[in-house]
Write a protein that binds this DNA or RNA. Sequence first.
DNA 1: CGGGGGTTTGACGAACGTCAATCGGGGTGG
DNA 2: CCACCCCGATTGACGTTCGTCAAACCCCCG
Lengths: 246, 246
Amino acid sequence: MRAAPHPTDLNRLRDFGLRSLTRCGVLEADEERTARAALAEAHFQPADHELIAEGDPLNRPFLLLEGWAVRQRVLSDGRRQIFSFILPGDGFGFCPRQDGISLSSTVALTPVATARMPLLSDALHRKPSSALTRAAWNMLSLEESCLVNETVRLGRQSAYERLIHLLLEFHDRLDAVGLVQDGAFTMPFTQEVLSDALGLSTVHTNRTLQQLRRERLIETHMPVVQLLDLNLLAEIADYRRSPRLA
Amino acid sequence: MRAAPHPTDLNRLRDFGLRSLTRCGVLEADEERTARAALAEAHFQPADHELIAEGDPLNRPFLLLEGWAVRQRVLSDGRRQIFSFILPGDGFGFCPRQDGISLSSTVALTPVATARMPLLSDALHRKPSSALTRAAWNMLSLEESCLVNETVRLGRQSAYERLIHLLLEFHDRLDAVGLVQDGAFTMPFTQEVLSDALGLSTVHTNRTLQQLRRERLIETHMPVVQLLDLNLLAEIADYRRSPRLA
DNA sequence: CGGGGGTTTGACGAACGTCAATCGGGGTGG
DNA sequence: CCACCCCGATTGACGTTCGTCAAACCCCCG
């Protein structure tokens, strides 16, 4: 828990949360009431907090309102693979099975604000026409498409391509929730985190970043990254915009 | 289309399909009728047939009754990444969104037998207590856990560990549908396919296979592979049995 | 007997990892 | 205000894993 946040902050977080839930259309009156009530009680956790541990039941849906988190698995000798990033507006902690067990752990990269959102797992089993139901599906579906992108990066792309591809994914996902300005966004974590997502050593990640800067494809004033030529970058990395973000 | 299959064959396939649908419990009477009707019309496709193309709508669920298929993406320069294998008893071609679009293509590795199974996507939106609904969720859920395993292999494991890990996954998944005898199973495709799943060159895959044979960890009489010491293999590759298979 | 696809081999090179030292900036205690 | 410290970024030297290329081999089939 952080220090008590300013009320204005809470309002901003609540509005942000509502926008995430209504991305597929307007909510029913009762849904909106429930959502507002849930969003009124935001939780704040510090960086490195383990939000979900391996083995935890996946029956407590959350909405991430602020900050970054990752889903990762740690091998017995300490190697870590980050396989997905959770960004503001993303849901996590739920799965369509009632008896789902997490096979990975979910960890906050930065201080985060989250809200319990039981609504999300309820929505999964309702009429597919409801806006909330579609929003919940969208979240699961985006997760899968990101996982597929990750396997392609890791399996068949060079370090150079991989890094660009991941940066573009960040750009598009953050852009969809209004967190990009002028091609610039915040990447509030160390190069080690980036390396564990890209399957590279930190040294090599560092050198690849330098190369991108030298070639004037990106500019960094950490933690802010700016992509200088989206189209060129997308071509280099064979990046395909995800229709799930629209 | 292959030559018309022998009726005994059709019966075997139908029974196999029913077992897959009832893995989570007995079906309702009407569900079973619908399933039997669908299974009565098996489709047969040759190897290399593209079952689902990139961009196809994901609204036609199938059940794979026989043979192997993969989901893959091909980069613009021809590099291919296979990110998941579809085995007998697995469902494919559906997704919880109504407007889902496939971002990858699904291709038969061998001649395959499939059955249209609209029942599966209907089930997604029904009461979570139904056996069929749980079976449908199970399929999607297994898919995700396999994707996570794949990213860990590709991102943080050596060629040697990767290969073992994937072989163990094949073993467990095939075992769950009765296609393993004595630790031996059929892997009916070329080393190139294996390489495209492991993110390796065929040459290196070949050498890694040889190493496993030399160390007497596996035996091969292609296309049959036998794993000689499951526990040792699992320890080497940090392999964790998936609870989703039970 | 010839041909073709898949497997195997060897030689070589490139991409990436490891180790260890250095740098740089923000925070902290004196 | 300054010295110190610590963590993360950076650099260099070197090693290893894995990729590439090209040839040979093997087996099945026509």
